[in-house]
C-alpha cells in the first residue's frame, strides 16, 4: 500500500496545492501537454466545489451576482479544502469566510444570511422524521406533563441576526414577488429553519419562543423549560408555541424524560 499512498498523495498535492507533478505522471500521447492535463484536473476540482457552493448558497449568489460569487467561491476554495466525498457537506465555513472577506465588508448582513442558508441547506438533506402523533401525547397523565421531553425534527435550526435575514431569504424564495423592499434598519430577527412536506421553511420566532425552544433542543423537560422561560418572559404563551411548532413539523415526538 505504501507506494500507492505516495503516488496518490503526490497527485493530490499537484491538484489541490499546485505542486509540480512527478515525472511518473505522463501523458503518452502527443495531442496536449502534461500541463494541460493537470490543469483539467485542477479545473475540475475548483469547478465541482464552486458548483457545490452555488447549490448550497443560492440566495448569497443572487445577492452578490454571479461574478462576485465566483470570485468569493474561488477564494474560499483556496483556503478551505474539501473534507468529504459528499459534496453536500462542503461549505459550512463560508459564513465565517464571508465575514472576513474584504470585498464583501459593505454588505454587513451577508455573513448572517449565509449562516441561515447553510442551516436551510442542512435542513434540506436532513434525515426524515415521523409526523407527530397527537394520540401519543394524549396518553400522558397531567402529573407526567412536567417530565415530557420532545423530539425535534432533525432539520430544525435557529439562527439569530441583528439584521432582517428571514425577510431577505424569503424575498429570494421562488414564490416571492420579483420586486422586494427591505430596509436593513428594520431590525434583528430570530429565524427558525424547519421542514414540512419535504419543503424547507423559514419563520420568525419571538424572544420567549426562542428561549423556550433552545431548552427543548437540549432535551430539558417541559416543566423546567416552561418555568425558566416564564421567569424571564412572563407573557410567554406555551399553548400558542406548541401549536405553532407542531404545525411547522418541528415537534415530531414526545417521551417521558429520565
Amino acid at each position: 500500500m505504501t507506494e500507492l499512498i505516495d503516488q496518490l498523495s503526490h497527485f493530490a498535492q499537484t491538484i489541490v496545492q499546485g505542486k509540480e507533478p512527478k515525472t511518473q505522471i505522463t501523458n503518452c500521447y502527443a495531442n496536449y501537454s502534461q500541463n494541460t492535463a493537470i490543469e483539467v484536473y485542477r479545473n475540475n476540482y475548483r469547478g465541482n466545489l464552486h458548483d457545490a457552493l452555488a447549490g448550497a448558497y443560492p440566495v448569497i449568489k443572487l445577492l452578490v451576482g454571479d461574478d462576485f460569487f465566483r470570485m468569493l467561491a474561488l477564494k474560499f476554495i483556496e483556503h478551505n479544502p474539501s473534507r468529504s466525498a459528499n459534496l453536500h457537506h462542503y461549505g459550512a465555513e463560508l459564513p465565517d469566510f464571508v465575514a472576513s472577506f474584504e470585498p464583501a465588508q459593505a454588505l454587513a448582513y451577508l455573513s448572517d444570511t449565509a449562516t441561515l442558508e447553510w442551516a436551510c441547506h442542512c435542513a434540506y438533506f436532513a434525515n426524515d422524521a415521523p409526523l407527530f402523533n397527537l394520540a401519543q401525547l394524549a396518553q400522558f397523565a397531567p402529573d407526567q406533563h412536567p417530565y415530557l421531553v420532545f423530539d425535534l425534527h432533525p432539520a430544525t435550526r435557529i439562527v439569530r441576526s441583528l439584521y432582517p435575514i428571514s425577510a431577505i431569504w424569503l424575498a429570494h424564495h421562488p414564490d416571492a414577488e420579483v420586486d422586494f423592499q427591505i430596509d436593513l434598519n428594520s431590525g434583528s430577527c430570530i429565524a427558525l429553519v424547519c421542514r414540512r412536506f419535504n419543503k424547507v421553511e423559514v419563520i420568525n420566532l419571538s424572544e420567549p419562543e426562542a428561549y423556550w425552544l433552545h431548552q427543548i433542543l437540549t432535551e430539558t423537560p417541559l416543566g423546567g423549560s416552561t418555568m425558566t422561560t416564564l421567569e424571564h418572559y412572563p407573557d410567554f404563551n406555551l399553548q400558542t408555541t406548541l401549536v405553532k411548532l407542531v404545525e411547522m413539523n418541528v415537534i415530531t415526538g414526545v417521551k417521558l424524560g429520565a
Partner: peptide, 17 residues
C-alpha cells in the same frame, strides 16, 4: 489521499498492489 479529498474521478497507476 492522506489529508485530501478531491471530489472528482481520478486515475491511478494500474499496479498489482
Amino acid at each position: 489521499a492522506t489529508g485530501f479529498v478531491i471530489n472528482d474521478l481520478l486515475p491511478f497507476p494500474y499496479t498489482r498492489e
